[in-house]
């Protein structure tokens, strides 16, 4: 039942507007749609996936906005966000390197790849390079055991990788990033 009076305690419009400034119209619309269905709270993980898909990570302000819009306690939202491995609470690099650390990859030398990646990038697992180019992460199993050892950079899968190939693969992405930077001003002019 809608309240007929301009009730001062109903600040839904304001909540929505504040959250909208953080999340953007598209996400607000998605959350509204979730709320219209049964068991809206159960969509929390799906919402967080969307938010991360848009921003690359889950920042504090975004988590708060989700909590407000979905009407779930902020503590629960941050609890869920920090529980699952795939959710990131810090900004990440342009290219996300996911090295598979599953059994098949391990017995085929993923540990040596891990070392080489750390050496080449100068960062440890879970960290991002200073220039914001690469984030190094480990995956449990990417389900491509037959191509072991495997690593995924953004969406490209590289199979049967040897430590010597690592600099070549990384270089591909550095060049790709440079190309994008060069293309942008060209496109504008």
């Amino acid at each position: 039942m809608n309240c007929n009076h301009a009730c001062s305690t109903d600040n839904w419009a304001e909540v929505k507007a504040t959250a909208g400034r953080v999340l953007g119209e598209d996400l607000v619309a998605f959350i509204e749609q979730c709320r219209a269905e049964g068991n809206p709270h159960s969509q929390l993980i799906a919402v967080l996936h969307r938010v991360q898909g848009k921003f690359g990570y889950l920042g504090k302000s975004q988590l708060d906005a989700v909590a407000q819009l979905l009407q779930v306690p902020a503590a629960k939202v941050s609890g869920v966000a920090s529980f699952y491995h795939l959710f990131r609470l810090q900004p990440r690099g342009k290219f996300i390197i996911n090295l598979c650390l599953g059994t098949a990859c391990y017995v085929k030398g993923a540990d040596r790849l891990a070392e080489k990646l750390s050496d080449e990038l100068g960062i440890r697992f879970g960290e991002t390079t200073g220039d914001g180019m690469f984030t190094l992460e480990g995956a449990r199993c990417l389900g491509a055991c037959s191509l072991a050892p495997v690593m995924v950079v953004n969406n490209d899968m590289h199979g049967a990788v040897t430590p010597d190939q690592i600099p070549i693969i990384l270089d591909q992405y550095i060049r790709k990033a440079k190309q994008q930077v060069e293309e942008k001003p060209a496109a504008q002019s």
Partner: peptide
């Protein structure tokens, strides 16, 4: 369809149920 978010324990059925409910998968 409901997506997981990278928690191995969610393969356990009661944890999976919690995860579908939008909770921590415990």
């Amino acid at each position: 369809i409901r997506l997981g978010a990278g928690a191995f324990v969610c393969g356990e059925e009661t944890a999976l149920i919690h995860s579908i409910e939008g909770e921590r998968g415990q």
